[in-house]
Write a protein that binds this DNA or RNA. Sequence first.
DNA 1: CTGAAAGCGCTAACAG
DNA 2: CTGTTAGCGCTTTCAG
Lengths: 398, 398
Amino acid sequence: MTTLSRVRRRLLTVGPASRPRSLAFISSGMIAVQRGCLCMGIARSSNSVTLVDVAREAGVSLKTASRVLNREVSVSSSTLEKVQRAMAHLGYRPNELARGLKARKSATIGMVVKNLADPFAFNAVKAVQEVARVNGYIVILASSGWDPDVERSEVESLIRHQIEGLIISPVGSPKSNFLDIIPPDFHVVTLDQPMRKASFDSVMIDNRRSVRNAVQHLLEHGYERILALSTRPWLHTSVERIAGYRDAMRKAGLESRIALVEHESSITREWLDEVVLKQHKADAVITMNWVCTIAALRGLKHNDKRLRKDVAFVSFDDFDLADMIHPTVSAVRQPTEEFGYEAARLLIQRLKGTGPKTQQSIVLPTRFIARESCGCKPLNEDDARSPAKRVGLIAKRQ
Amino acid sequence: MTTLSRVRRRLLTVGPASRPRSLAFISSGMIAVQRGCLCMGIARSSNSVTLVDVAREAGVSLKTASRVLNREVSVSSSTLEKVQRAMAHLGYRPNELARGLKARKSATIGMVVKNLADPFAFNAVKAVQEVARVNGYIVILASSGWDPDVERSEVESLIRHQIEGLIISPVGSPKSNFLDIIPPDFHVVTLDQPMRKASFDSVMIDNRRSVRNAVQHLLEHGYERILALSTRPWLHTSVERIAGYRDAMRKAGLESRIALVEHESSITREWLDEVVLKQHKADAVITMNWVCTIAALRGLKHNDKRLRKDVAFVSFDDFDLADMIHPTVSAVRQPTEEFGYEAARLLIQRLKGTGPKTQQSIVLPTRFIARESCGCKPLNEDDARSPAKRVGLIAKRQ
DNA sequence: CTGAAAGCGCTAACAG
DNA sequence: CTGTTAGCGCTTTCAG
């Protein structure tokens, strides 16, 4: 019998503090079987072995048991062993919630993303979870679904659950606002987007430069009627990326052609036909994000437009199987897992009090993956492979 | 001044219990400003407004404030309003951890997946999180990375954090074992795979039948040297799927051709060339899971093998852009979001005590999406679209 | 090196 | 309808 029930132990080892309470306790919904070998707790059934029980079993005080639990040094090896044996024997499981209540730490970090189905999000989440685990933290995951109200209430919920820090990829809409519910010196790391009017740590890329470089690449191939395609143009990332596009076009003395839609559902075959092909007579298209890419790719295909032959194509955001589409799709690759990795590292540094006290802004490098759709012949097969090859991999560091 | 600090309130309203402790408290790292309008908590800075504070501010007892917090009915509208105003004024934030300690519920469910980068996993997680949110639960996410030991320790960690229920897609390896650390009447729902020697609720598909149907489809196209390709053949899902393959082949009086590898990294171009093409002279390939598909697709492409022309192809697991590869890839589609949705529904029903008491096993339907790689002309464009179109969508029900 | 006592922020039992 | 009292399971002073 490894897991003696609470009642059993209470009955058997009344101990020094057998106050009236014991009786009241027993009468309130427990069954005590006399035979002494089988006891069932009905009320608080599962796993109610507490540190008190451990201490009693080991014949030490509660505090001593607590010391063992917390690996404090000042415990003689004999008591240490006694307590550990008691823990094992009883099948003791510390209650992290109770632990956190007094100690004011929950060993929990919160993470909020916009859409888990976006490769950016799940790769980041994956890395965050991995780093958190190694450092003894768990992560509560929430998803805003691009809704500022949901975002706000999710953050609120996380705070109520006493997260020690927050990693968030903010919706970033003008209406998005949760700064007022963040406690003053709370640790927050933003991903992908910065927060207006806030000075949180952040992990981002140089959106503007990344797009500028990509557009320059298209220009070098001789395309001139390059069209930038973006959803949610009010997003900080969109704004920056479009600025990068403009930079490159302006420098080349060419007219900017920009097609913006609020939501990817607007990017239909007909719309592409009308706007991209008829209106702008684009000879190349560069998308500003993943959903855009998927929508445009699908729409163009159904238009019987062949990538590169009729219109060159560059995607912002690389994706699985970009190297399997014909022609293979050139893309700006963000280091999605690194995002999560760095964010978690920043946050945990803060929580542990190691690392710098000043605001940290990490800017991660992107890479232009030249495949065929931009007009190139891919040179390095490894580079050209889509992110799929990294499935299951997390950069191991630290 | 909406957020008065704890010290301030302690100093101003000493109340009945002004024990020596108060002094010690103040001396240990707080700054009290005399002017009476500005106070800063240094020690326990953020958000330490408690229900006691609210009660005091509202001039009611702790319990009454608690009643308001819990929306209990027996509160007069005048006190209700008083308390609510006090809460708003103080910027009160309930501590869910403390709440859970006494009430023995954490409003938290745990979820463990094998690999978050797998479309199956993130779609399921997404749905679980959504359903949990709507029902007032938060979800702690963990990932086993296919490692039984990690899986076990993650489950252990979740239990320590007092999750009320667990949704897990088990590693399912022979060494995988965490049953002994699950408390007796704990609520668990398994996803994708069942647990040996356990009678948890589960959400699965009919793997055997799904594959049998797909193979039969290939047979109807006249292929005879159909090869089944699988990783991790010891997995329950793999076993079932391979059984389905055998069923169909046997029924057709054809020889089964099965190529198994432990890990997808074995599926190289050379390996495919040797095993699939030279050794088996396969005229069709059916993969048994997503990683297999990606690896095989990539390997075949680099072999200058054209899908359908040289070898037909069916993928178990549909994927984004399956309709963008040339030829488009036929696939067995699992309802990935439904998995999560149903699992969460089952679990929350259990937690709330609604719904049946007996073990529930939900078997979700799959669909064969006939595109071109199996030899078909796709009929319905909508069906043929890859799952990408569903980005951002969650089935709203209940 | 060890223990007793006092809570963390909240809910629950039981009176009024 | 409201308040009092006793904890949830743990950590934390502060004494030995």
